[in-house]
């Protein structure tokens, strides 16, 4: 019987294993998505040109909407997972832990919903 299986039998879950693995997988994907994003938005395009019209043009294609949605979800989950570990490292008192994790997960939820809504529902206005 494998070690991980034995761990599950004893403890019920391998959450930390999968969290660790997901960290790496999302990291690799983000490497391309995030660096691509930075390149497109900051290097390839002079930042003076990043304005409403630029974004509107970009969101005219489903490709960029998908790209940004993927980037948002991966970055958020990757980042929140990281914050989770940091809070576990540094916040020892139980009450503070509850508070910190409440804030983290609430913020994550709110900002994710907001971001997804923007990406999915954005309709360009004529400028």
């Amino acid at each position: 019987m494998s070690l991980a299986r034995q761990a599950v039998e004893k403890r019920g879950t391998n959450f930390e294993l999968w969290s660790w693995y997901y960290f790496r997988i999302s990291g690799v994907l983000l490497l391309f998505l995030a660096l691509g994003h930075v390149y497109v938005m900051h290097i390839a395009t002079p930042i003076e040109e990043v304005n409403y019209a630029f974004v509107a043009a970009r969101y005219a294609t489903p490709f960029w909407r998908t790209y940004d949605a993927l980037l948002l979800l991966l970055a958020m989950s990757h980042g929140v997972n990281g914050m989770r570990l940091i809070l576990h490292d540094y916040i020892r008192a139980r009450s503070w832990r509850v508070f910190a994790f409440s804030v983290l997960y609430s913020a994550a939820l709110i900002f994710t919903v907001l971001g997804v809504l923007v990406i999915l529902t954005f309709q360009p206005q004529p400028s």
Binding site: N51, Y52, G82, V118
Partner: peptide, 29 residues
């Protein structure tokens, strides 16, 4: 990592401003 995550939050907000139309968004950018 923490810095980028914090920026991500801000970035979502500033991008959301796009819903208020070109005037608001362009003012911020």
């Amino acid at each position: 990592g923490v810095g980028v995550l914090l920026f991500l939050f801000i970035h979502i907000v500033d991008t959301a401003l796009i819903g208020w139309g070109p005037d608001v968004y362009n003012a911020v950018t």
